[in-house]
Amino acid sequence: MIRPTARNITEDEYFFGHKACAGCGGSLAVRIALKVLGERAVAVLPAGCMSAVGFNFPQLCFANNAMISTFAGTASMMTGVEAGLRARGERDYQIVGFAGDGGTADIGIQALSGAIDRNDDMIYICYDNEAYMNTGTQKSSLTPFGASTTTTPVGGKIRGNVSGKKNMFEIVAAHGIPYAATANVGYIEDYMMKVRKASEIRGMKYIHVLAPCPTGWGIRPEEMIEYARMATDCGLWPLAEYDGGEFRLSRGMGDPSILRNYIKGQKRFRHLSDQDIGHIESMRDARWEKIGGSWKVPGRDRP
């Protein structure tokens, strides 16, 4: 595999002129994935930010073939596109789906599960901005604990979202998928490498990329990359790969103490008390204990 870099990926832009908010993490995830996959990629997008900002007829921002699917049917429409291209005798194509966290973990999960079961040759990318941002920040099952959204508002008794973030990466891996990975737009080289790797594996692939949303998270647009990196560095968003029945950590935790800055800097978490932050820290530590016990960690031979 040739590691994709800024110098060897195509200069063509396949997602350009779109109407995403300034500093949008999701649009960066789509743009970079298409630059790695090239013009023979066919994109399928359900309802969500990226279909809302990319297809404002007649402003059509995808330079490759792209279509909007039903909200629940991203993965099943990808299967149909793949079967259609195969029936026409086409070669060297990539089917890629870009669904948000709601379109993946809530509404589209059965279609995704079915596609993994059929093991069709395609790449499903979930850009996770941690709520239904397109419709104005409603809670999804990938919204983290404590986040204030319009459906989990902060009041006298309830302080934001009371449930935690669904572990979508391990749910997908539990199907026995050929390749699954978590990525982060803040570590773009790692994300590009995972997209390239996925494009060279036959069968179903899943990449879950964290894509901060300045509008919904309550951060300034220029801080988007900084917060994306902090999420991984403080241990809340571990970067890992799953293939051949094995979990492999791509990057260790940076500085666990910056979790407090990560939380306190975002408007959606600003109401959280020290006790709430302590709860988030203990959930993170429990997760990392599990990772340390069973995942392959770089620089260590055995778990």
């Binding site: 350009f16 402003q59 059509l60 921002c61 330079a63």
Partner: peptide, 15 residues
């Protein structure tokens, strides 16, 4: 269905 990559507006006014 419509032609890919068809832009009619600039985004510079957002800035």
């Amino acid at each position: 269905a419509y032609e890919a990559g068809y832009l009619v507006h600039r985004n510079s006014g957002w800035r």
